[in-house]
C-alpha cells in the first residue's frame, strides 16, 4: 500500500462521487462534508461500477441490481449484495486527493 495521487480535489464536488482508474482496481472516491472517502468501485454482487449509480446520505446504490453500501465503512446496506466493499484510506493534501492503495 502506498499513497497514490488521484486527482485535484476541485474536480470532485461535495456530495458527488467519481471513479479513479489509476490503481490496481477501480476505486470509488466521494466527498461528504468536506471529507473524502474511498471504497472499491466494483459492486460485490456483480461486475458493475458503483460510481455509475446513485449516492444519497453516504449510501451508494448500484444501478444494476440496487445493492447498497455505506461509502464510509464499505458495509452492505441492501441485498442482493452480501459482501462488504474494501475501504481505502483517503485524504486531501495541497488541494489533491490521495488514496492509500
Amino acid at each position: 500500500m502506498a499513497w497514490t495521487k488521484a486527482f485535484p480535489s476541485a474536480d470532485l464536488p461535495e456530495g458527488e462521487m467519481k471513479q479513479f482508474a489509476g490503481a490496481a482496481e477501480p476505486i470509488l472516491i466521494c466527498k461528504l462534508g468536506g471529507k473524502v472517502h474511498a471504497v472499491q468501485d466494483t459492486c460485490t454482487h456483480d461486475t458493475w461500477s458503483l460510481a455509475d449509480g446513485f449516492l444519497e446520505d453516504g449510501i451508494v446504490e448500484c444501478s444494476l441490481h440496487f445493492a447498497k453500501f455505506c461509502v464510509r465503512t464499505g458495509q452492505v446496506k441492501a441485498l442482493p449484495a452480501c459482501d462488504a466493499l474494501k475501504v481505502f484510506p483517503a485524504k486531501i493534501e495541497n488541494d489533491f486527493i490521495y488514496i492509500d492503495c
Binding site: 456483480d46 458493475w48 461500477s49 455509475d52 449509480g53 444501478s63 444494476l64 441490481h65 440496487f66 442482493p80
Partner: peptide, 13 residues
C-alpha cells in the same frame, strides 16, 4: 438518464 436498464422481475440487465 440511465447507464443500464434492469428488468425488475429477475434482474437481467
Amino acid at each position: 438518464n440511465a447507464k443500464a436498464f434492469t428488468c425488475t422481475y429477475h434482474g437481467w440487465a
